[in-house]
């Protein structure tokens, strides 16, 4: 099956088995959207938009796609950036309610050996989300792709259509802000 998919070309193969391809990417794309948007409902909508765009693109056979994973990641990042920009005008937005917070916390790693580790992980997760809200859209995108997706700076630059120097600048500022926001938590942990 995998060989057949490769021989048919990535996009054609994905279209012929769209549910299977989508299932292989969905979790990663959803988590990427969640980290960038910080809101589960927005991340749901964004994930749906991403795969709908992918499906439409496969149907139209828009150009050649060499790397489907990178291609769909780019769609996800751009979709999230659009949503973040449109949020600027939504002054009525409130912070996620408690139910949403629990959903977000459920995304945090829960494989710590003891209760203290679990609690610490949850605290880190909550503080990380708050700190990421302080980042600009570009800084958030770059940080998410580097920290969570483990892409290299060159890959991030290609994906976002920026030069490497700009990516570095965004990342440096993002890290500086994050460290400033998380310093007390980190130092408390280290004692």
């Amino acid at each position: 099956m995998a060989e057949q998919l490769v021989a048919a070309g990535p996009a054609a193969a994905a279209l012929s088995d769209f549910p299977g391809w989508m299932a292989s990417q969905q979790r990663r794309v959803f988590l990427l959207c969640l980290r960038m948007l910080g809101d589960p409902d927005d991340a749901d909508t964004a994930t749906q938009d991403v795969f709908l765009k992918a499906y439409r693109s496969f149907e139209k056979q828009d150009g050649e796609i060499d790397d489907l994973t990178r291609w769909v990641t780019r769609i996800a990042v751009n979709t999230c950036l659009d949503k973040l920009r449109s949020r600027r005008w939504q002054f009525w937005r409130k912070r996620p309610n408690q139910e949403d917070e629990e959903v977000i916390l459920a995304m945090a790693p829960s494989t710590g050996p003891d209760a203290e580790d679990k609690l610490y992980a949850q605290q880190i997760g909550a503080r990380l989300r708050t700190a990421m809200e302080r980042l600009s859209e570009r800084q958030r995108a770059v940080f998410t792709l580097r920290h969570f997706e483990d892409l290299s700076l060159d890959e991030i630059a290609t994906l976002l259509g920026l030069d490497v120097g700009t990516v570095k600048a965004h990342l440096a500022r993002a890290l500086a802000k994050m460290r400033e926001d998380l310093l007390d938590l980190y130092e408390a942990r280290r004692g």
Binding site: L34, T47, A106
Partner: peptide, 17 residues
């Protein structure tokens, strides 16, 4: 290490289709 709940992902797939 992060896990997304399966029911949420299932609902997303239904909405996408």
């Amino acid at each position: 290490a992060y896990a997304a709940r399966e029911d949420r992902l299932r609902a997303q797939r239904a909405a996408i289709f």
